[in-house]
């Protein structure tokens, strides 16, 4: 099942099982159904539970907060994370604070699903990731699935959680295909996954950097280097235990993020490892992040913007102080995407 089909499966399943779940968002009843992730939802559940939103991101978010405090479970959907910036007041000042601010009398069980764009010159305002921005805020939970199985399991878990959850999905992963059970299951929030065991170096990866890290690890295997890859899955709460366990074993750490470096999740992970297990480190940790600039539109520079398997491979070699004595085998992913949106 494709990543985007897994999101659809989770959405429909949650709506079937729990009458409190409803969908709301700008353009969600569009015939394209948010890249097919909502196909059939309107037909199956009707406009009472699949609510087309006017272009009013802040109000829609506040509407979700209000509905959530009444016991409903809104799923608010955005075609781009960039558009969520209009609703930061409701997310950060209200949704995230509500439970604590009134002494735990109410919860805000809402989910915000937002898509990260990439490619075809989508440019500075349609390609941002922003997961670290949300992960900075106590009161929010932040999920970044990396494969179809977790795309479904994490969304189902989010729709049962009592706190506001930000679910960030990368359009780049939408077509990825893997087995997904039809049955209802949950991917636990706050648990990372070791997706490839190894002994020499730990790679902690976020979202689309997970498949890139797996490619890098596979390419290094013939050279005798064994890399362990951890899919972080949840940025807040962060599963530090899983990272520490791995780093204690390998002594080396590379963090591969699909976001900017400064004040980001890669730096956060490295800081926490340094605080908790500095002595286990045999080499300086390395982070792979986006260049420190807006995402360019022009194909010539856009193509060079995104780090991938090749950069991760180089970082691994750096932690083991080995020169690039092997040919770098893994090219970074550039998927076929003929735009426009």
């Amino acid at each position: 099942m494709k990543f985007r089909e897994a999101i659809r499966a989770a959405t429909l399943q949650a709506m079937e099982l729990d009458p409190a779940v409803f969908l709301i968002g700008v353009g969600i009843t569009d015939p394209r159904a948010v890249w097919g992730t909502l196909s059939g939802a309107l037909q199956q559940f009707g406009p009472g539970r699949v609510i087309e939103g006017p272009l009013a991101e802040e109000a829609l978010t506040g509407i979700c907060v209000g509905a959530a405090t009444m016991g409903l479970r809104p799923l608010l959907i955005h075609h781009r994370v960039d558009f969520v910036m209009l609703s930061m007041n409701q997310l950060v000042n209200h949704a995230a604070k509500w439970r604590q601010m009134f002494g735990m009398q109410q919860t805000v069980p809402m989910v915000v699903r937002a898509v990260v764009g990439r490619g075809w010159g989508n440019g500075p305002q349609h390609t941002q990731s922003h997961h670290a921005l949300f992960a900075h805020i106590p009161g929010l939970k932040v999920l970044v699935p990396a494969n179809p199985y977790d795309a479904k399991g994490l969304l189902l878990a989010a729709l049962r959680d009592e706190d506001p959850v930000i679910y960030i999905e990368h359009r780049w992963l939408h077509e990825d295909d893997a087995p997904v059970p039809e049955a209802y299951y949950l991917t636990p929030i706050g648990k990372a996954a070791v997706v490839r065991p190894g002994t020499d170096v730990t790679i902690v990866a976020v979202g689309p950097m997970v498949p890139e890290s797996l490619k890098a690890a596979a390419a290094l295997e013939p050279t005798g280097l064994s890399a362990e890859v951890i899919d972080v899955r949840t940025l807040r709460p962060l599963d530090l235990e899983a990272v520490l366990q791995s780093v204690t074993k390998t002594g080396r750490l590379v963090v591969a993020d699909s976001d900017w470096g400064p004040c980001g999740i890669a730096g956060e992970i490295i800081a926490r490892v340094a605080e908790a297990a500095h002595d286990a480190l045999k080499a300086r940790p390395v982070r792979i992040t986006w260049p420190d600039s807006a995402v360019p539109s022009s194909q010539a520079i856009e193509a060079r913007f995104y780090p991938g398997a090749a950069e991760i491979q180089a970082a691994i070699l750096q932690t083991v102080a080995r020169q690039r004595d092997t040919e770098l085998l893994a090219p970074s992913t550039v998927k076929k995407f003929d735009g426009p949106f």
Binding site: D82, Q125, H126, S298
Partner: peptide
Amino acid sequence: SKGWGGSMHVIDLKAGVMGTSAIVGG
């Protein structure tokens, strides 16, 4: 826009075209 903006971000300050946003209402 020197290739940084693409179709959604055009500007010509001499002509009084002050720049366009891809965010609705931006």
